[in-house]
Design a protein around this nucleic acid. Structure first.
Lengths: 167, 167
DNA sequence: CCAATATAGTTGGTAGCACCAACTATTAGG
DNA sequence: CCTAATAGTTGGTGCTACCAACTATATTGG
């Protein structure tokens, strides 16, 4: 933890570069995705939720909230929106009557497929400029990054700065 | 444009994998950054704005809005918040009296540095697990991705689905 | 030089998102 | 049972982001 002294000056550079590139990427993607998704019937969060539920049908609300790093109240409202639009259903949970099972409707599945196809089409346009091996490794790299970041989140909890007694 | 027929089935896979990895990454990072940034005095957007202004001191509001892909009204309010907190100042533009020049105050600069150091520390923790060459190329890759995506945004404008007459 | 038009920024209004806190209903443990 | 924990919903708040309307300045053309 405290060995953050720079043994490797390159690491500093790389980390800074990573941060810069990543924040740009994220901003651009948020923007791009908004345009891309919102013209179908969904907001971004709704789309993510639909996707999470497509991947994990029958999940409870808490499951979904955890997958998406959302508060359960937010999750509940997102589900309500999807429900209202007919893409997701709340079913009583067979084993726990407090819980609900979230099920994607055929309409939801269809919409999800359409959006996914659409976005993947975009990605393909992007990837065309990369050579095949880079392309293949990209997703793996990003996945490692995401997992690493997720682990960091888990560890430090919802709490604030990792250096609690800094100042 | 219409040559989206799959000449290369690998491209489809890669694109799908990229999409999945990227949306995970973005969600995790949004979440992580919120925790990390908000414990300093800022929201995420405010932090991005502060960073953009640090990189480009003296920018006008429109400049900043363009950099961040924000509506100018949003940009104005973000600046107001930063102004209120004493991190940014609005100065009359020397050449155009309609415009303003946004200047980061010393306090703003100091806060930005602190946040940046903090986040980069996180990134370093992540990057430790990557071998040096991968690490070095990561940022470049992400930057290419971001640029590609930004170009796509620019081209298709604020408008909706690239396939206008789809259904 | 003045009128029409464009541009920079602000403000009003609206809607979504995300949080915490308070609440209901159910389950689990002692 | 009665208490404590858990699943989900709802209320309240604040930030973000959009469009539209507005003010003030700049630019262009007659």
């Amino acid at each position: 933890m405290t060995d953050t002294q720079t043994a490797d000056p390159r690491l500093d550079q790389d980390a800074a570069a990573l941060y810069d590139a990543l924040s740009d990427l994220i901003r651009v993607y948020q923007f791009r995705d908004r345009d891309r998704i919102c013209c179908h019937d969904l907001s971004i969060t709704q789309c993510y939720a639909l996707e999470a539920l497509t991947k994990r049908s029958g999940a409870t609300l808490n499951d979904m909230a955890a997958d998406l790093f959302l508060d359960k109240s937010t999750a509940s409202r997102v589900v309500s929106a999807l429900d209202r639009k007919g893409y997701v259903e709340r079913r009583p949970h067979p084993e726990d009557r407090r819980a609900i099972q979230l099920v994607v409707t055929p309409a939801g599945r269809e919409l999800h497929d359409r959006i996914r196809r659409d976005i993947i089409e975009q990605e393909k346009r992007l990837l065309r400029d990369f050579d095949p091996e880079t392309r293949a490794s990209l997703a793996t790299l990003l996945r490692r990054l995401a997992q690493g970041a997720a682990a960091g989140v888990e560890v430090s909890g919802g709490m604030c700065c990792t250096k609690p007694a800094l100042e």
